[in-house]
Design a protein around this nucleic acid. Structure first.
Lengths: 218, 218
DNA sequence: ACGAAAAAGCCATCCGCAAGGATTGTTTTG
DNA sequence: CAAAACAATCCTTGCGGATGGCTTTTTCGT
């Protein structure tokens, strides 16, 4: 395989760029044709590389998928944290709505769902990515606590409510397969927000903010 | 292809039995290895038939999947209606909990999710099953209205709340990939029920009950 | 400081294999 | 005997992966 971390400068950044491009192509491919039809050939072509080059950077398809999953998870966490700093004074409603629009109801999230779904039956892939998935869950929990506080002051409530929100939104993404009424989806989103927003408020202080975007290659 | 509907009696029931067995094998296969690795050979073997026999009953893989999807959808609807009649006097809480345990958190539902997910990127399959999916949604809506009534008396609320409940539960099924704490899942279920149940009560009269289990081959 | 060996990036080609499907029987049923 | 149910076999395609050769970059002895 490659030595993206240890190699000297010029080659290292070149390798990183290549791997990033390949992972991005994999994400686009997962979204476009699904996990089953995401083939090394397609990914290589979409990334502008030969199949051999792809195999040089990722020894096996599982390596590719795992790296792509990492990239998606990292993006997901980065997406909530960065945008948050800017829009500090938005309402809980708007913040939740933004989670749906910018994080869940996206092509990238659907690509991630392809991998998550594939990992259910593929135990090798499952164990391969499970650590990062768990870490992802913890990062989202932490972010929830950093962003919101419960009106009753219990941090566990914040975590639970936001976990439920994500589950609900995840399920809505799949619902689109058997409900052509797109308007209905946003109604459900609004209704859910109406139910949980009163239980939350935006957290003002950023005392115990932590940086949970870990360092990794792809 | 076959003539399961028009063929004479003895052959007809034989054909129906065979198709049912094949679809059941496909369901088991979808659950065990996922959509991508559900192959005609595996399904045929699991069903106790040769590949040729399978192809006799289902001319293409898409036919097989479509028939399997129909079977799953029908089962899903049947699952809510039949059990309902017996347990007429259970609480809303118990009824919702039972939906999770007997309908969503099951192998069959995971098999269905495999097909639903595959249909996202596979437009041919998508259009193939979309009519039945829409009908499924309507049947579930109708069943929701038959089973519950809103405390504010608005039937549309019942539909919306139950749609949201199903979305939430669907999302929870996927969550299991990155939360090993099974206990947390049931806590979320309970919390969801706590939020939804107060808005519903069991409907007493069965005035406008309809039978929406349509007749079909597999 | 420099030039050759070593290593990394990259590509074209080949291989084994299993997939979905087509064909051609053989057996069972009407 | 005709049609349906089923089986065995073959075909084509595309997959993931392996191999070998060709550039570009890095390393290192001198």
């Amino acid at each position: 395989m490659n030595n993206a971390e240890t190699a000297p400068n010029k080659q290292r950044i070149k390798s990183q760029r290549a791997q990033a491009a390949i992972c991005d192509a994999a994400i686009a491919c997962l979204y476009a044709v699904g996990y089953g039809d995401t083939t090394l050939n397609k990914v290589a072509t979409m990334a502008g590389f030969s199949k051999g080059a792809l195999q040089h950077h990722f020894a096996s398809k599982e390596d590719l998928i795992a790296a792509t999953a990492d990239r998606l998870l990292q993006r997901s966490v980065a997406g909530v944290t960065t945008t948050k700093a800017q829009q500090r004074f938005e309402s809980v409603d708007a913040s939740l709505r933004r989670s749906w629009e910018k994080l869940i109801n996206t092509a990238a999230y659907r690509a991630l769902l392809e991998i998550l779904n594939a990992a259910r039956a593929d135990k090798a892939l499952q164990t391969r990515i499970s650590d990062n998935l768990l870490q992802w869950g913890r990062a989202l929990d932490q972010n929830a606590i950093d962003t919101y506080e419960a009106v009753d002051g219990n941090d566990e409530d914040v975590k639970a409510l936001m976990n439920m929100t994500r589950s609900f939104m995840r399920g809505l993404v799949i619902q689109e397969r058997y409900t052509n009424d797109a308007d209905e989806t946003s109604k459900h989103i609004e209704r859910w927000i109406d139910m949980i927003a009163p239980q939350l408020r935006m957290r003002e202080s950023d005392e115990n903010r932590t940086d949970y975007v870990k360092h990794q290659k792809c």
